[in-house]
Computed example of a mutant assay.
Amino acid sequence: MASQKMKRGSVSLRGALIAGTLSLSLVAMPALPAGADPVVANPTDALTKLTDLARESEQTNEALHNAKIDLDAKEAAQADADAAAVRDQGVVDEANARVAKFKPTVDKLAAANYQGARTNRLFAVMVSDSPQQLLDQMSALDAISNDTAKQVSQFTEATAEATAAAEASRKSADAARLAAEQARGLSDDLQKKQSELKSQIADVTAAFGDLTSSEKAQLAGRPFPPGFDAEALLSGLVPGNGASALQAGLTRVGSPYVWGATGPSEFDCSGLVVWAYKQIGKTLPRSSQAQASGGVAVPRDQLQPGDVVLFYNDASHVGLYAGNGNILHASTFGVPVKVESMASMPFYAARRY
């Protein structure tokens, strides 16, 4: 009995959530003539111009996010390479210190050999005046010989280690320089994209300002397609997976599209997906292209609510599958977050997180 009350309470809460979402969306969206299609129909030249400009800005916006991801990764690689170079140089310094420790002995031995020094047993016999003196002389020679041989061996080992360490240090230093150069290249590319996006945003907002009220209403469309029942959709979903991300995303219907925004009240396309999944404790990549590479691939005919769906041949747009061939997304400037048919865009791929 208690479980039935909890279930009824959960359904009521979900219903209230959807009702609130619908109310908010309907207030935020411009009024449309009865029966108007949610996809822009018979666009004017001004709408066509705006749509083209907005599409270009979205591509640049997502490319900008991707460039930032690449730059962050490259800067992390550069930091690792720099640290490795420092460690390797430390090994070189230690190896060189060992070489320096044994070098005097090796130098003395080399000098003695050059000067013809006699340090062998025959020489001991020749210069000894008594058996005891001979034994003492030979014992001393053995000690000198063993110690010298040991130090020569250690010198050889240390020299080999120093040579290997120097080569490793050279490689890590080269890797650090290469990583730094690549990071600088990505940073330059990022700045170029930022400048390009800024210019495109100015063009889009100017074109939007040229629209009439009816054109703006036509562009915005409806928050949901005809017949879309959010409460019925959510009532059969399993909590804790992509469906929960979709449920969170649906509460943002009516929020404006803003380049680079990740919520909670403004979004771009990948920003909405990131925000929705963040609400269920999952961190997704920031760009649509990176989102296209994560998760698990899902065929189009096996999509489930909450799956991440990518569009266009460069995966430059993304949204959350909302069932029955629909997508929840932050589509473009001038169009609030909404649910509409996937048929309005060319399908690229889908991923399940």
Score class of each variant (00 low, 15 high):
Pro38Met: 09
Thr48Leu: 11
Gln59Trp: 02
Asp45Gly: 11
Leu17Ala: 14
Glu58Pro: 01
Lys49Pro: 02
Pro33Ile: 15
Asp52Trp: 07
Pro38Gln: 11
Val39Glu: 06
Val27Asn: 04
Ala41Asp: 11
Asp45Phe: 09
Val27His: 00
Thr60Pro: 03
Asn42Ala: 13
Ala19Met: 03
Asp45Leu: 09
Thr44Cys: 00
Ala28Pro: 04
Ser23Tyr: 05
Pro38Gly: 10
Leu32Arg: 11
Leu24Cys: 11
Ile18Phe: 06
Leu24Arg: 15
Glu58His: 05
Ala31Gln: 08
Thr51Phe: 02
Thr60Tyr: 10
Ala41Ser: 15
Ser25Val: 14
Leu47Lys: 05
Thr44Tyr: 01
Lys49Tyr: 03
Leu17His: 12
Val27Pro: 04
Val39Asn: 06
Leu53Glu: 00
Gly35Ile: 04
Lys49Ile: 07
Leu50His: 03
Ser23Glu: 06
Ala46Trp: 07
Leu50Asp: 04
Gly35Lys: 00
Ser23Trp: 07
Asp52Leu: 13
Lys49Gln: 09
Gly15Lys: 04
Thr60Asp: 09
Leu22Val: 15
Pro33Asn: 15
Pro30Met: 10
Asp45Met: 08
Gln59Gly: 06
Leu32Glu: 03
Gly20Gln: 14
Asn61Trp: 00
Gly15Tyr: 00
Leu26Pro: 05
Ala31Ile: 07
Gly20Met: 15
Glu56Ser: 13
Asn61Ile: 08
Ala19Gln: 06
Asp52Ile: 12
Ile18Asn: 02
Ala28Asn: 08
Ala31Phe: 07
Ala46Ile: 11
Pro33Cys: 15
Arg55Val: 09
Ala19Lys: 01
Thr21Met: 15
Val40Tyr: 06
Val27Leu: 08
Pro33Ala: 15
Asp52Ser: 13
Asn61Leu: 06
Ala41Met: 12
Thr44Arg: 02
Ala31Cys: 00
Ser23Pro: 01
Asp52His: 09
Ala16Asn: 09
Thr21Gln: 10
Ala16Pro: 00
Ala41Trp: 04
Asn61Gly: 11
Thr48Asn: 08
Leu47Glu: 01
Pro43Lys: 12
Leu47Phe: 03
Ile18Arg: 00
Pro43Gly: 10
Thr48Ile: 09
Ala19Thr: 06
Gly35Tyr: 01
Ala46Gly: 13
Ala41Ile: 10
Thr60Glu: 11
Ala54Ile: 02
Arg55Ala: 13
Ala16Lys: 12
Ala46Pro: 01
Met29Leu: 14
Gly20Phe: 10
Pro30Ile: 13
Ala28Gln: 07
Thr48Tyr: 05
Leu32Val: 02
Ala19Asn: 04
Thr48Trp: 02
Leu50Gln: 00
Gly15Pro: 01
Ala16Thr: 13
